[in-house]
C-alpha cells in the first residue's frame, strides 16, 4: 500500500508543489541535531580538542565583550563590505558588457572559469607585493575571490534573456541605455541575485584569508593567531561566529532569490 502511494507521481508532484515554502521548523530541528552531534563529539574527543557548544558560546561571549573585539570586527566588516561593493558593481558592469557583446563573452568565458577554479590563495604573495600589508590587500583578496562568480552569473543571465524581450525593445524604439535599464537588468535580476549570493560568500572567504596573512587586525588575524598558539577554544568560538553570520546572510539572500524567481515565474 505504502509503495503504491510512493509510486504515484501525481500525488508526489502535487504535494511538492504545495510545500514549496521550506519548512523552517525542520531546519531548526536539523540545526538542533547538528548541535547535539557536536556535543557527542566533545564527549568522544574531550573538551581540550573540541570545546562543547555551551563552552564555545560562553567563550564567544567573552571574546565579544573584550575591548579589542569591536576594532577587529569593524576592520573585517569594513574590508569585506568594501570588497563586496567592488565585486558587485564591477562584476555587474563587466558581466553586462560581456553578456551583451557575444564575441567578447566567448573569448572571456573559458579564462574566467579557469580563474574561478585555481586556488587563488597562492596569489597572496603577489597581492602583498602589489598592495603591501594592510586593508587594501585584504580588499583585493576579497575582490579576486568574489568578482568572478558575479561576472559569470550576470553574463549568462544577459545571454539567456528571451529574444522576444529584446525584439520588443526594438519595436518600442528604446535606446541602448533604456534597453539595459528597463529590459535587460530587470529580466536578469533573479540570475544576478544568485550571482550576488555566491559572490558574497566567496568575498567574505577571500577577505578572511587575506586577513590571515596580510594583516595585524580583523577576525581572520585573530583566527590565525589562535591557530598558531593552539587555542582551540578561541578558534571554535570565532568559527561559530563566522558560520552563524555567513549562514544568516546567505539564507537572507537565498530567501530573496527564491522570491524573485517565483515572481519571475508568475509573471
Amino acid at each position: 500500500m505504502r509503495a503504491a502511494q510512493d509510486a504515484d507521481p501525481l500525488v508526489t508532484a502535487e504535494r511538492a508543489e504545495r510545500r514549496a515554502v521550506p519548512p523552517a521548523l525542520d531546519t531548526m530541528l536539523m540545526i538542533g541535531g547538528l548541535v547535539a552531534l557536536w556535543q557527542v563529539g566533545t564527549i568522544l574527543l574531550g573538551h581540550e580538542a573540541l570545546p562543547s557548544p555551551v563552552a564555545t558560546v560562553s567563550k564567544l561571549a567573552g571574546i565579544m565583550a573584550d575591548e579589542d573585539f569591536p576594532r577587529h570586527a569593524w576592520e573585517t566588516a569594513r574590508a569585506s563590505l568594501t570588497a563586496l561593493v567592488i565585486s558587485l558593481v564591477a562584476g555587474l558592469a563587466i558581466g553586462l558588457a560581456l553578456g551583451a557583446h557575444r564575441l567578447a563573452g566567448e573569448v572571456a568565458e573559458p579564462m574566467l572559469t579557469a580563474l574561478y577554479s585555481i586556488p587563488k590563495i597562492t596569489l597572496y604573495p603577489i597581492i602583498l607585493l602589489l598592495f603591501g600589508l594592510g586593508i587594501s590587500a585584504k580588499i583585493a583578496f576579497g575582490v579576486i575571490h568574489g568578482i568572478i562568480p558575479v561576472i559569470l552569473f550576470t553574463m549568462n543571465a544577459v545571454r539567456n534573456i528571451c529574444a522576444v524581450y529584446l525584439r520588443s525593445a526594438r519595436a518600442m524604439r528604446l535606446t541602448a541605455a533604456q534597453t539595459a535599464g528597463t529590459i535587460i537588468v530587470p529580466a536578469a535580476v533573479p540570475e544576478i541575485v544568485s550571482g550576488f549570493r555566491v559572490g558574497f560568500a566567496l568575498t567574505l572567504l577571500g577577505t578572511l584569508i587575506g586577513e590571515m596573512f596580510a594583516s595585524q587586525r580583523g577576525i581572520g588575524y585573530m583566527l590565525v593567531k589562535a591557530m598558531e598558539t593552539g587555542d582551540t577554544g578561541t578558534v571554535m568560538a570565532l568559527a561559530l561566529l563566522l558560520v552563524v553570520l555567513a549562514t544568516a546572510a546567505s539564507a537572507a539572500l537565498l530567501a530573496l532569490d527564491r522570491r524573485l524567481r517565483r515572481h519571475a515565474l508568475a509573471s
Binding site: 540545526i31 560568500a201 578572511l208 555567513a246 549562514t247 546572510a249 546567505s250 539564507a251
Partner: peptide
Amino acid sequence: PLLASYYAVP
C-alpha cells in the same frame, strides 16, 4: 538552506 550557505563558511 544549510547546503546553500555552506560555501560562505571558511
